[in-house]
Nucleic acid binder design. Sequence first.
DNA 1: ACTACCACACTACCATACAAGTATGGTAGT
DNA 2: ACTACCATACTTGTATGGTAGTGTGGTAGT
Lengths: 225, 225
Amino acid sequence: MVFVKPPQSASTREVVYSALREQILQLELPPGTGLSEKEISLQFNVSRTPVRESFVQLAQEGLLEILPQRGTYVSLIDTSLVEEARFMREQLERAVIKQACDRFPQEQLIKLQGNLALQKLSVENQDYKKMFELDEEFHRTIFEGCGKSYTWGVIQHVNVHLNRSRMLRLAADHNWNHIYAQHEQMATAIEAHNSSEADRLMQNHLNLTVTDQSLLKEKFPAYFK
Amino acid sequence: MVFVKPPQSASTREVVYSALREQILQLELPPGTGLSEKEISLQFNVSRTPVRESFVQLAQEGLLEILPQRGTYVSLIDTSLVEEARFMREQLERAVIKQACDRFPQEQLIKLQGNLALQKLSVENQDYKKMFELDEEFHRTIFEGCGKSYTWGVIQHVNVHLNRSRMLRLAADHNWNHIYAQHEQMATAIEAHNSSEADRLMQNHLNLTVTDQSLLKEKFPAYFK
DNA sequence: ACTACCACACTACCATACAAGTATGGTAGT
DNA sequence: ACTACCATACTTGTATGGTAGTGTGGTAGT
């Protein structure tokens, strides 16, 4: 009972799964889009089996709705799920950043500051997608520094709906200077071991996500449930 | 783009998936057990396809390890994952029970008290599995009363490893009187809107889970990674 | 004009066949 | 006795055919 060799080469299922997941989260496959096993299998030039298995995976994550004998659709964004996801994220992020103020490795702190520099650039260049990635990485780095990588993974897993919502927001309005400024202040608070300030900042930061939820629903009504 | 009819009858994949999941969480399929698509398909008298799809699902949840061309095994319990799961659960449970002290529906409060009565019975009868279920239901009811059902679902999804660990604990030692007493005090705190007391109780309550982790690893070394 | 019906094209679902990688036990050669 | 090799019986991965349920558009009947 020893698990020696990790699976090296990606299986066909894995490839299809990752590709579809990326397209869904990037809104290249918008909520409500109809898919079909056959269509995708032709598109990737593989059989229906691995496609079907990736559908099952994506459905389990809540990214696809499989209606037996009827069709498979990219799931609509459920605002109540988004709210609960935001709630969970808030609790966990606040707990972690407080922990980071107590003890945070130098290496990760440097990584944070490098990330911030890139954020500043992306804001200036109005590079939306890059900024989104850097935002993710910023938060992930905090979790890693606290030895909570798995927790971050769970947040990512949970917040698929929230992420699509955030993607809409980044594409819609443009207050990244604010976001960037908040990130910078959080890094400073961690460095200064200022736990209460960090907690306050994070709370405000994550509240941005929920405020314009109804606004998004007006702008993109077809994407919401 | 309307999703009218929910899928009524369970598909073969769903049946196999649920059955295996239950067996794994109940430790009827202990960590490390080797499975095979063919074996299970014969056992359920179905083809390999739905079995295989349920394997993919269970692997995504971290309950199975699929080693290509080598075999599939019930995953071992990863103590570091257990610790992070406990961390997440603590943060979320504390946040929710504090919210429950502010505002909690009468209906759910009654449900809590009914549950407590059954817990007392189960403790007296030393009915381990029943007590485990009632414990789950107690916590779930708190989440439901706060409109956080999805959050509870996520905890359940996350804590598969933790749950197996807890199952071992319940089978091993016998301090349920303590667990029951804590539950009772929490219900009282909710009713009395005593937020700080509820928070303190929940924190202690969940700390029970982690303390004897190393002890379990000694008792059942083969089940851990 | 309207309704009931039905053929057809589509879907996801499941069973089966084949392919490819892996562990193992026996055997021939040293 | 020991090692290298190979046939074989496993495993999971992929492809494909057939089944059953579902939506749709056309048509015959009223």
